[in-house]
Design a binder for these strands. Structure first.
Length: 749
RNA sequence: UGGGGUGUCGCCAAGCGGUAAGGCACUGGUUUUUGGUACCAGUAUUCGGGGGUUCGAAUCCCUCCACCCCAUCCA
């Protein structure tokens, strides 16, 4: 785990420490209407991970409130995904549909409180009445039905007496709320549809906003973690729980940014489209970012877990580079998986001076992987090497076989090219070579230096295998649609050649094909007669990188131009205030502007001024510190008053306290409402300006940090702040920073 | 346009008034019978822009800009 905690864990810890909850309970609440993808994996890691880290619980809950979309096959896929990632949901899988009876009771309770009503507007009318983001909506005429009427109607809705869409149950909140979600949200709709689990018992189904918060509550969830797009729904979440009087301990919703990865798509809609149009082979197509896809491709659960851990959790919309995922799987497999040799694009090599055959012993793992194991490797005069590993006219820096350059056959001998055989078209079809008998791997006395060792297979013993090479599904970094599909996302090699041990011994299901990448025996199509391997990910290839030298020359460095918008003009009153502040009171224009434009602040300012005439000092405190407190609160809601602020500024003016201490005192005033003079007295915060006291403290800091002294003297002037900070810390902030600054600068010279 | 969010290196992401963490990617170098791995080194005088407060600002204040979400009887 990374050393810094994410904001969710910080929050959970706070809530546990404050005693808000005894134990943390989270939940992973997917709707079973599609296959889970790696975005779900992130959510799974967060929810189950937090439960694990804080010894709490995490439920797996199917949020199945829309019978038209959900299906059992998706719940199975969801369960598989959670299990595969190694998490345990303790007990049964939960289903929102199991709570339908309870949910119905809550709805009735809301109706009885007069907080919900049956609306009979048409769908279009409801939309119209909702208004727009800038215009308020208007309430339906059905909103003032009596409680009895609503109860009766709702009961009949439940019994299935009405057609779909005839009525809905809505919360009675506020049709002019600036949050659109709060404009009398729908709670229940009529659906004469078979539910994959609840069967035909219900004719009405709850909406997400009603069901979700209550399901959380029913399960004793403490932290309801969801993605950013639900931020607007948080108000309803709280409204439902609050108005139903469902108090402590109750769940609260927290949102994080969903995962985006480049060169792929993550939305269920787009994934479904790919599957349904047959553009991929199914939900488990190895090119898909679905859990089933990664699993089929050969990714390990550990690699996905590590990936999720590495990308972190935050609230900024982001697009993670696939390279990060690819790193995670390489990193995991590197230490786990046997190395074997497979030739994808075979080129025949005849070793003319070799006779007979032999069997070499070759370790499965390189020296830097602490694992044991080896296999028998047949060698003979006819072998195949990778077509790429021979070049007749090599570019500079080519390390492999050429007419002039020998190579080592990995685990075997060094060979030298003697002749290049071509067909009529001039294609190379065979290499005639010679081997060096005294260059045998492990007992090489030949003294020949080669630049690389390449993979090969012996022609007679090699097995034919199918290898499926996968590449990114889309050619565009952030694909818009099907037109961005990568036409080369799948390449099938029907007759690759692999060393026999892989097929006969089956030492593992995942391998590194030496110098090529990591591969996985396809769990479905693989058979002994017809082995099939999926490419999981390629090895990093700095040679390939070097070849595509034409670095993107034009970096198209279009420095974004910042456009400055219009600043709203001041009203006449504000303008005259502004003029007065600048002219009479000598404030700088920025502070004057802040004060003049805010009636609350200017009122506060002028009153404080009447207690202590220090126009600039008070203005600065009001415009910078008081402003923060008055953003969300009214003057009478705040614990401090103008007189106290005046006193505070007076102490700064007298140099009784430093501005740094003044801020600290102000914080205290916000919380306690205590007078600043008392706070300073009680805590002994009077400023220390005497160099005789400060000097020794500085000396101590200097002797404790010899390295930083060096750096400072070497020219790192930023460190002045470090020393000043240390001294201030040592004096509890009381040292006069100006004096400290001067003294430190002098002493370090 | 009203409301709710978010802007720190090419990509993620810490940081919450006192020396700009870390990972991926990238660039050198060392080791290497994988052009892999491992290891070492390098990479933000600067935190969306502009002002202000402060001895000191990525962090506090003001202001502007950009992007995302919300007007499904989806979740």
């Amino acid at each position: 785990m990374s050393e810094s905690k994410d904001f969710l864990r910080v929050r959970v810890e706070e809530d546990l420490e404050s005693g808000k909850y005894q134990e943390v309970t989270t939940r992973f609440p997917p709707e079973p209407n599609g296959f889970p993808h790696i975005g779900h994996a992130k959510s799974i890691c967060i929810n189950f991970g937090i439960a694990r880290d804080y010894k709490g619980h995490c439920n797996l809950r199917m949020d199945d409130t829309d019978p038209t979309k959900e299906d059992t096959k998706y719940v199975e896929a969801l369960k598989d995904a959670v299990e595969w990632l190694g998490f345990d949901w303790e007990g049964n899988v939960r289903f929102t549909s199991d709570y339908f009876p309870k949910l119905y009771e809550y709805a009735v309770a809301l109706i009885k409180m007069g907080k919900a009503y049956v609306d009979s507007l048409t769908e279009e009318e409801i939309r119209e009445y909702r208004g727009t983001v800038t215009e308020a909506g208007k309430r339906s005429k059905y909103a003032d039905r009596t409680v009895e009427e609503n109860l009766a109607l709702f009961e009949r809705m439940k019994k299935g007496e009405f057609k779909d869409g005839a009525h809905v149950l809505r919360a009675k909140i506020d049709m002019s709320a600036s949050n659109m979600k709060m404009r009398d949200p729908l709670l229940y709709r009529i659906r004469h549809v078979h539910h994959y689990r609840a069967g035909d018992t219900w004719a009405i189904y709850p909406m997400y906003d009603f069901a979700h918060c209550l399901s959380d509550y029913i399960e004793g969830v403490t932290h309801s973690i969801c993605t950013l797009e639900f931020e607007n729904n948080r108000d309803i979440y709280d409204w439902v729980l609050d108005t139903l009087g469902l108090t402590t301990p109750r769940p609260y919703q927290h949102e994080f940014a969903r995962l985006g990865i480049n060169y792929t798509v993550m939305s269920k809609r787009k994934l479904l489209e790919l599957v349904e149009k047959g553009l991929v082979s199914g939900w488990d197509d190895p090119r898909l970012p679905t859990i089933a896809g990664y699993k089929r491709r050969g990714y390990t659960p550990e690699s996905i877990l590590n990936f999720c851990d590495q990308i972190g959790i935050a609230k900024a919309n982001s697009m993670v580079d696939v390279a990060q995922l690819e790193f995670a799987i390489r990193d995991d497999l590197n230490t786990k998986v046997p190395r074997v040799m497979c030739v994808l694009d075979p080129l025949k090599v005849t070793i003319e001076n070799y006779e007979g055959s032999e069997v070499l012993d070759a370790p499965y793992y390189p020296d830097d992987v602490p694992k044991e194991g080896s296999r028998k490797l047949p060698f003979s005069s006819t072998i195949y090497i990778e077509r790429d590993d021979f070049m007749e006219n090599p570019p500079k820096g080519y390390f492999r076989l050429t007419p002039e350059q020998s190579v080592r056959l990995k685990h075997a001998y060094i060979i030298t090219c003697k002749e290049v055989i071509k067909d009529k078209e001039g294609n190379i079809i065979e290499i005639k070579a010679e081997y060096h008998p005294d260059s045998k791997s492990g007992s090489d006395t030949s003294g020949i230096k080669v630049k690389s060792a390449i993979q090969w297979v012996s022609a007679n013993e090699a097995k034919k295998v199918e290898v499926r090479l996968y590449d990114r599904l889309f050619k565009d970094e952030s694909p818009e649609g099907l037109e961005d599909l990568n036409p080369d996302s799948l390449k099938i090699i029907k007759d690759a050649l692999i060393e026999p041990a892989v097929i006969v011994e089956k030492p593992d299901e995942r391998f590194q094909f030496e110098r090529q990448g990591y591969f996985y025996a396809d769990p479905i199509d693989y058979s002994d007669e017809k082995p099939v391997f999926n490419k999981i990910v390629g090895l990093k290839d700095s040679w390939a990188k070097k070849k595509q030298l034409p670095r993107r020359a034009s970096k198209s460095e279009t420095k974004k131009v910042q456009i400055d918008g219009e600043v709203a003009p001041m009203s006449e009153v504000e303008q005259s205030l502004f003029d007065k502040y600048i002219g009479e009171l000598n404030l700088n224009s920025e502070v004057a502007n802040t004060l003049a434009r805010d009636a609350k602040l200017s009122g506060f300012y002028e009153e404080a001024l009447s207690h202590h005439h220090s126009p600039v000092g008070i203005a600065n405190v009001v415009a910078n510190e008081v402003a923060r407190e008055l953003k969300e609160k009214e003057v009478n809601e705040v614990k401090f008053n103008t007189k106290q602020i005046a006193e505070l500024v007076k102490m700064v003016d007298d140099e009784t306290i430093s501005t740094k201490i003044a801020k600290q005192v102000f914080e205290e005033m916000i919380n306690s409402g205590e007078s600043p003079i008392k706070i300073v007295e009680a805590k002994g915060l009077i400023q220390i300006s005497d160099p005789a006291i400060i000097g020794p403290i500085i000396d101590e800091v200097i002797t404790k940090n010899p390295e930083n002294v060096e750096k400072f003297k070497a020219g790192n002037s930023k460190l002045l702040g470090f020393f000043v900070g240390q001294v201030l810390k040592a004096t509890g902030g009381k040292a006069n920073p100006k004096v400290v600054n001067e003294l430190v600068a002098k002493k370090l010279k």
